[in-house]
Design a binder for these strands. Sequence first.
DNA 1: AACTCAGCCAACCGCATTCAG
DNA 2: ACTGAATGCGGTTGGCTGAGT
Length: 345
Amino acid sequence: MGRPPCCEKVGIKKGPWTPEEDIILVSYIQEHGPGNWRSVPTNTGLLRCSKSCRLRWTNYLRPGIKRGNFTPHEEGMIIHLQALLGNKWAAIASYLPQRTDNDIKNYWNTHLKKKMKRFQSALDPHMASDSTSYHEFVSKSFSSTDKRSLDMLNQQQTTAYASSTENISKLLQGWMRSSSSPNKSLNINGYSSPDHDHDQDKLHAHHHNNINNGNISAATEQEEEEGGHEHDDLISSSDQEFESILSFHNLNNVVAAYNNWDKSANSCDQYSSTDLKGSQTSTTAATTEEKLLIHDDQNLKQQQRSADNNPPLSFLEKWLLLDETCTSTTAQVEDQMMEELSPIF
DNA sequence: AACTCAGCCAACCGCATTCAG
DNA sequence: ACTGAATGCGGTTGGCTGAGT
């Protein structure tokens, strides 16, 4: 016969997780590692279904998850990947390891889809003649070479847990806060670090400045050339930003920027590697996370080795890979990128 | 101050695939 | 080889929150 049932339907708790439950789950996974979800509710005493435990871990408690404040860079990646892969959120999330598929899916449904709609409706009068949808438009911007690049990238990388214990410490801090101030809402969103959010806001604002400082995309240019000013009002600033994200037309600038960027990416790789080593030595307990860290370091080295044996990466690969291996200095690199790629972003 | 409404997001549901027995 | 549970994944929903009236 098959396996015994994973969990009984009766006595299973549903709804939002409490900080106490989170702590129980996190400490169990720290001890035993993620996986074997069936045994989690039994061994922890949590009145949750194994499925619920796995979801809670992967979507919220897993270390290294970045929450909220999607950067324009991430937006661009999501838009391109969605155009390429469709609603394969797990596949898209594999290129953005700091984001969960649920997070990306939510962000797409609540923000990007609307932007797309506005963008499309603003462009429609021009697109109507050749029935080009935004999907086709984006796909055209994204060459078949890039599709191959994505496949290559998928083979090269393994999904890696980020090296920080940020989430767990936030969890503990949030729990301490909520314990000491019972009136305070136990809203799990409260775990997010205000400093982090602040930095993200600054970064976001910076990107917006760069974007809004006069980058006219191909579509807008086309409109101007055709004297289609009647739709100017329809294209909001966010649409312009959006078009900028989609536009890969100024390839000369891309190549120039890429050459410079390549250097920063290399130094960044070193950075992340030493970061990992540093964090390994600084922790004393041999936690599961440490094991994952060591695993990650090995993966990183393996990636670097395999990269040495492979042909030069395309611009897109660098873009994507950089985001994977260099999260600690993403802000710096993005700033540099935004300056260098100003005609595009 | 009270109410309504829309936006957002965590979590659930159900289907498809994988895999243990 | 077969069965059925475990797992993965995408779609959907319920409840919270803040803005508007």
